[in-house]
Design a protein around this nucleic acid. Structure first.
Lengths: 233, 233
DNA sequence: CAGTGGTCTAGACCACACA
DNA sequence: GTGTGGTCTAGACCACTGC
């Protein structure tokens, strides 16, 4: 009620969030306009705008020109998580990172990959498989496919001393990507590689990355099932 | 090279990103100051600031007062994903949502939960288990624990017609939370509930939410293993 | 201490969408 | 048309931190 002397955009943001939580503005409600809130909080409209924009980015309010700002009626929270380089992920646990190349082969893209890449005609890809270890314990199996057309330098890289994961991050930084997580059962081969029992649960992260509209690489990263991805929201 | 007449913050952001991608500014490099870029792009410093802030939020550059802005040397990409209400997630696939309450019991928090909640002494919680179905197919098993101290209204809710997931989202909107994903093998009971074979892979999402410093609820959401969480970055 | 980013301001113009 | 958010500007002051 009191016109809280909230100058900073964080204070404005928190005050708005409080009012949403305490049902001053219930789910689906229309909030006052930026100018009205700027007047109430005695700050510039740009300050209210930044506060509201952050709430919109977090999926808490919806904003539309002319229609105004509403509390989202069916909350869909947004959570952000980090996608680290495997080596760093392992070293951050205090373990020694080790890397083992398993296979490396240049070939024509198989049909399933051609379809994923959206290629009408098949083209050359580099297929690399390798293992990331934490100390002596297998941490992740990487099954990597790289478009040679998009990353010609890959053809000259042996991947004996650096993983495709790390090499690509350095060589093709900040491409666009998509990541999926899923659970699978270990086949015999995978179980042996990851040193788990056949049939054990495997946590798989599947990634595709593009540069513009062109596919760069596809990878499946398989972890023993006790692996977790965690994030706050 | 050309002083691209990039007025909008998106253009500025994209131009900076291009220069990072084409190694004009390699990994770890120091970028020009905001004022210098504002002059080059012939725009206000605030515009450059917004562009740089977005790149910093995305984990592409690091900014420190006095030290300036650097391209992150070890790229750790940030991906954002949505945490929907289960019912909406199912209905968005075109399937009919069905819900079945399995159990509901008020009890003293067991030790493992007390420890997760950071409670020095145990207190009352409500334990609810239920099943979310897409048509006739089990979609998710929800194992839910709610702090009665934090959500006294839960004690008066039967959860026969609304799931704890959806009820909590409506009743305690926009609390803070943590979510983890992991892979597990189905035990006999879980396999029967989710109609998969015992030992099949299960995709588990584990959530904790707080209001301020107080734990509100803990839940394990178990899906058949073919379930995926996908996001772009 | 000096230079960088962090933030706020007051004002302006624009794009959009609904009446 | 008209009111909303979206964005930009020019300037200002501040906070942090490396020199």
């Amino acid at each position: 009620m009191t016109a809280a002397t909230a100058t900073g955009f964080r204070q404005v943001r928190n005050e708005i969030l409080s009012r949403i939580r305490d049902r001053t503005w219930p789910l689906g409600a229309l909030l006052p306009s930026e100018s009205a809130l700027a007047e109430e909080f005695d700050c510039a409209r740009a300050t209210v705008n930044r506060a509201m924009r952050e709430l919109a980015d977090a999926g808490i309010v919806e904003r539309r020109r002319r229609a105004g700002t509403r509390v989202v009626k069916d909350p869909v929270r947004h959570a952000q998580f980090k996608i680290p380089i495997v080596r760093q992920e392992i070293e951050r646990t205090g373990a020694t990172y080790r890397y083992a190349l398993l296979s490396r082969e240049a070939l024509t893209a198989p049909d399933w990959l051609r379809s994923r890449f959206g290629w009408s005609r098949s083209s050359k890809v580099l297929h690399v498989t390798c293992l990331h270890l934490a100390g002596t314990r297998p941490y992740q199996f990487e099954d990597r496919w790289i478009s040679i057309a998009m990353v010609p330098k890959a053809a000259g890289e042996s991947f004996e001393h650096i993983s495709p994961n790390e090499w690509l991050v350095r060589e093709v930084p900040y491409s666009d990507g998509e990541i999926s997580f899923l659970a699978e059962q270990a086949t015999g081969d995978m179980a042996e590689l990851l040193q788990v029992a056949p049939g054990d649960a495997i946590f798989v992260a599947e990634r595709m990355t593009w540069l513009g509209d062109d596919p760069v690489t596809y990878a499946r990263m398989s972890h023993p099932g006790h692996y977790r991805v965690t994030t706050r929201f």
